[in-house]
Design a protein around this nucleic acid. Structure first.
Lengths: 100, 100
DNA sequence: ATAATTATTCGAATAATCTCGAAATAGGAG
DNA sequence: CTCCTATTTCGAGATTATTCGAATAATTAT
């Protein structure tokens, strides 16, 4: 679980992940991400691999391009963990139902 | 914001933070944390400083001991960010009220 | 088969993080 | 004032992350 937090705890990777989330279920080709972030392809691929390795992003081949997508269930799990494990019962404002 | 995620993205610091959250508003003395984690005092202090530096933990002097507390508003902010910025409108299951 | 395009893997330099012991600081007790 | 407990800061070593260019693999078009 710490691995997922660490993966998002890097400016470039957080921006990358945000781009992917905003793109929604359609996903985004790697080339577009590279163009948006303005970093070398190898660096981007490195970060992308870290995100994929933590299950936060999925990659799918589509002809010559690779489509990347944010893994929403994984993000839900992470947010749920932070809310459930870390916030215990001391912070209610996020979820209204206290069915812990 | 990435800084907060990075701070939590380390096994020792995540365990540390969890301990603090579970302790609730009463907080926990550093010595107790050290005893629970079984790491040298200097290492613990180093990690603790990182957490404090990111605003996730507060330290308060109480006689000779230092009481540490999790900063719940900060955690709420972080969870809110992940839910609001990153999950956009693609994952509803965490909060029932869609009053974004 | 050859070439062109897309993205990853390899290799190495740079930089940052993590860990820990020893010394320093803060506060209270005798 | 001196000692004692609790915690941090300092300094160094080892480990790991980050970055990027060059080379490689996968896919399609000619």
């Amino acid at each position: 679980m710490a691995g997922q937090l660490e993966a998002l705890g890097h400016p470039t990777r957080l921006a990358l992940y945000r781009l992917l989330v905003r793109a929604g279920p359609d996903g985004t080709p790697v080339g577009r991400l590279q163009d948006a972030l303005g970093i070398p392809a190898s660096t981007l691929s490195h970060h992308l691999s870290k995100l994929v390795g933590q299950g936060l992003v999925t990659r799918e081949r589509q002809a010559t391009t690779l489509i990347c997508r944010a893994d929403f269930p994984a993000m839900n799990g992470l947010v749920g963990f932070l809310h459930d494990e870390c916030c215990a019962d001391a912070c209610a404002p996020v979820a209204a139902d206290g069915a812990a």
